[in-house]
Every structure is written in structure tokens, then in C-alpha cells.
């Protein structure tokens, strides 16, 4: 069953990359989210899958009574999800602002910082 998830992760990454390569800012944003989900799943799967047993020690015990899910990747992913969301909202607002100020959602037309045919710096001191 691990391999099925591995292929699913591949699908997430492929779609994320494909959308990130788009020139439309909104599609790039969606691609970013999907890529993030794919990477989270990647870490999760790499830490091995265990069905339905949460990494929680039953009350009254010092040790779990049996195999449990690997807690370490979960801790990594938990913060990654929240940070990913903060990042997502930042990018969303950035795209929104860019759309408002530049009236463009296509990266090819966003050339304020790097204008086409910029002249050389002056050749003097």
C-alpha cells in the first residue's frame, strides 16, 4: 500500500510543478498549495504508514501497548501545514495586490522590476 501512496505523491508533485510553470499567477498559487500537500504526504509516507493507530499513549500507561504510528514525521508536518497556510495567504494577498496595481495576472506582463531592454549602467566613474 506504500507504493500506491508513493504514486499518489508523484501525482501531487507533478501537478504542482505543472501549475507553477504556468504564467497565470493564480494557477501558480494553486500549484504551490498542491506541491506543499505533496511534500507533506512525501514526508508522511517516508516515515512509514501505520493504519489507524495514533501516536498517543493510552491513559494510565507509560508506554504504548503495541505498534503505533511514527510520531516524528507528524510533528514535522503539523507545523509545515500551518506555515504552508501562512505562506499561501501571503502569496494570495501578494497576487491580489499585484493584480490591483499592475492590472495583470500574467507573469510575462509584470516587468516593473526588470524592464525589457534596460540600458547598460553608465561607463564612467
Amino acid at each position: 500500500m506504500d507504493y500506491v501512496l508513493a504514486i499518489l505523491v508523484g501525482c501531487f508533485v507533478a501537478l504542482g510543478v505543472y501549475l507553477l510553470l504556468s504564467r497565470s499567477v493564480i494557477r501558480m498559487l494553486i500549484g504551490m498549495t498542491i506541491l506543499g500537500n505533496g511534500v507533506n504526504l512525501l514526508i508522511f509516507t517516508a516515515g512509514r504508514l501505520t493504519r489507524e493507530i495514533a501516536p498517543i499513549v493510552p491513559a494510565g500507561l507509560d508506554q504504548p501497548d503495541g505498534p503505533i504510528a511514527n510520531p516524528l514525521p507528524q510533528a514535522l508536518i503539523l507545523t509545515a501545514i500551518v506555515i504552508g497556510f501562512a505562506m499561501f495567504s501571503f502569496l494570495l494577498v501578494l497576487a491580489f495586490r499585484a493584480y490591483q496595481s499592475l492590472d495583470a495576472d500574467n507573469t510575462d506582463t509584470m516587468r516593473v522590476a526588470e524592464p525589457v531592454n534596460e540600458p547598460n549602467p553608465p561607463l564612467s566613474y
Binding site: 495514533a54 498517543i56 491513559a59 503539523l78 507545523t79 501545514i81 500551518v82
Partner: peptide, 12 residues
Amino acid sequence: HNEPGGGFIGGL
């Protein structure tokens, strides 16, 4: 600390 939950989920 003892059950599923925590600051991140609560905050969300």
C-alpha cells in the same frame, strides 16, 4: 498534551 489537539489546531 494528552489527546489529539494542541495549540495549532485550537488556533485554527
